[in-house]
Amino acid sequence: MTAPSDRPADFDTYWNAVQAELAKLPVNAELTHLPLQSNQHATVYAARFTGIGPYRLFAWFSVPVGEGPFATVYQLPNYGSVVHVPAYEVRQRYVVLALRHRGQRLSDQPYAAAYPGLLTDGIEDPAGYIYRGIVADCLRGMDFLLSRPEVDAQRIALAGNDLALITAALRPQASALHCAPGLLYNASALAPRTSAYPLEELNDYTRTYPVQTAQMARTLSYFNPLHFANRVRSDTLLVTGSAQDFFSPAILEPLAAGLGGPVTRYESAHSSYRDGVQQAEWLSTHFGYSTPILPAQWQV
């Protein structure tokens, strides 16, 4: 299920233009202390900064108590309107940024995303597709982090779905990437094989606007992680499903094989506990800690 031929001829031009547009806008970060979420281990802020549009974005920004700079985890947003405050245990050790991209709650003025609906918003045109701005938001989060004195710029890990991988490709300062693809990877080719949302949104779209199917596929080709993979240089852990799952190791192997840096393949245990421990241990090892900090329920 690879789609190597769908890489647009102007792929690099498209993304260079996005980055140039972003570079013209100052980050203009503003931090507001949040006493409710802060504790003896970490201080939490509401971070606001500017993405393309211009558009004002929200993120949770947590800094461990103590002397930095600190190893940093940048949590890229999943598909849904809410992004949680970073976990208590992660905040104890790392600077953590958890972005809410445009359309998600607290980044939803003036644009509030619909679920379902976000994935096909503006999909007729690569220049107007909502994910053009969303990817730029993710890059802007990295720009924010790189501007912060609390952040050890040599030790930044990205964690998330396809957006994390794209960010790693376009912001090579990240030293590690923990990625569980499942949104934009070969999306137009894979969607007809499922009825599960969010990919079902693409099926809803083509059923409603069949004449736009080719245009939808063209737009999505600019966002296919496969076309970003060789630009990723960071130490990567790629999470797949099991052999019988939709995002099986076989389906994702072209992506794994295309990554430009060292890659570890991890097959999900379908357990938030076991997968969570695995992620914590992997990050901990990458950053040189002997043990991860885990919730009490995960300690054996």
């Binding site: 409710l36 504790n39 949680h84 405050v85 976990a87 208590y88 919730p295 329920q297």
Partner: peptide, 17 residues
């Protein structure tokens, strides 16, 4: 009392303040 994970963390945080 048993967890610091959201959403129950909201109660933990509220009672800490």
């Amino acid at each position: 009392q048993l967890t610091h994970t959201t959403p129950y963390a909201e109660i933990v945080e509220y009672l800490r303040l």
